[in-house]
Design a protein around this nucleic acid. Structure first.
Lengths: 112, 112
DNA sequence: CCGCATCCCAGCCGATACTG
DNA sequence: CAGTATCGGCTGGGATGCGG
């Protein structure tokens, strides 16, 4: 494949926009790995995140159609989050980025 | 492949860190497509960018080992930028993100 | 031609406190 | 349990101007 993306109509930012956010990749990985998760489960798995940020990042992912939010009208409240089918399309990209990221971390150590 | 990245040792941010920056993807695309480019050539191809930002983003890419910077000590000055071999590894990822980005732009239009 | 210095603002993110 | 509300710091990025 020696085809080049035309820089002037590049859609990379479109993808970056959905992934950028301090906690988004990690949230997506948990949802992809564990499946549907409650808010409190995610919070427990990512202890350093604040409730505010967890809410915010989830809402943004939801707005992009990548994460689904299901509210159960009970007391106490229960809200579940999951990856949408559409969101699954991101998985190979995340994996590729993770793999490259590992190499890059190594590279930086060598050239430190 | 049904292997999952362990979220607690995810290196996605490592890759995102190198790509995030308002102009980085487009700069990389130009360098990948056109090969070695002078500062002023890039500036001409991306007119909306300021000199300051072009310098800054190039320097950051250089610091990551993705872009090479060659200075010719002439008057007037001449500086050339190119993708390093190491940087080429990013190309498939950029292509995957671009492809997903196209779909996503479409998706958002439909659900507008 | 290439780049640095300065000033400025918007938006991300954290800490903390409060609520149905 | 799953959120909001408020305050405040920090940084990315734009505008503009100077310099070798």
């Amino acid at each position: 494949m020696n085809e080049h993306i035309k820089p002037d109509q590049c859609q990379i930012q479109e993808a970056l926009g959905t992934l950028v956010g301090k906690w988004k990749p990690i949230i997506l990985l948990y949802l992809m790995k564990e499946g549907t998760q409650r808010f409190s489960e995610l919070k427990r798995e990512i202890p350093e995140i604040t409730q505010k940020m967890l809410t915010k990042q989830l809402r943004e992912l939801e707005a992009e159609g990548i994460v689904a939010r299901e509210v159960y009208p009970e007391v106490p409240p229960k809200v579940e989050y999951s990856i949408t089918e559409y969101g699954r399309d991101l998985q190979p990209i995340l994996e590729a980025m993770h793999e490259w990221g590992e190499k890059h971390a190594q590279y930086k150590k060598e050239n430190a």
